[in-house]
């Protein structure tokens, strides 16, 4: 069974035509991989479907805009994977 990181890395590689080997757990989706907001909608859709969750993008954006969080917390892929795992775990409770 592939890890959460592998799943989202594969989604990003396929959606944005980025070489899979250049996508690392430390990669920042926006700053390092250059994914824009429209492409991220495609990624969010694929993640929502793959994990049966609803990424709270609006809440995350608000937190970043309010200075309560940094983009690293949500868009560095290992952190994104951790957030997804939390959402999947919360779904099962």
């Amino acid at each position: 069974m592939s890890s959460t990181f592998d799943t989202i890395a594969n989604i990003i590689a396929e959606t944005c035509d980025i070489p899979r080997e250049s996508i690392k757990p430390e990669s920042h989706a926006i700053n390092d991989l250059g994914i824009d907001s429209l492409d991220f909608l495609d990624i969010a859709f694929a993640i929502d479907k793959a994990f049966g969750i609803k990424l709270p993008l609006e809440q995350w954006t608000q937190e970043v805009n309010d200075g309560k969080a940094t983009t690293d917390q949500y868009f560095v892929l290992k952190n994104l994977a951790a957030r997804i795992d939390e959402l999947v775990a919360a779904k099962g409770t």
Binding site: F45, L57, E58
Partner: peptide, 9 residues
Amino acid sequence: QHEGSGYAI
């Protein structure tokens, strides 16, 4: 098809 957070398809 899908109602996401801040987007819909």
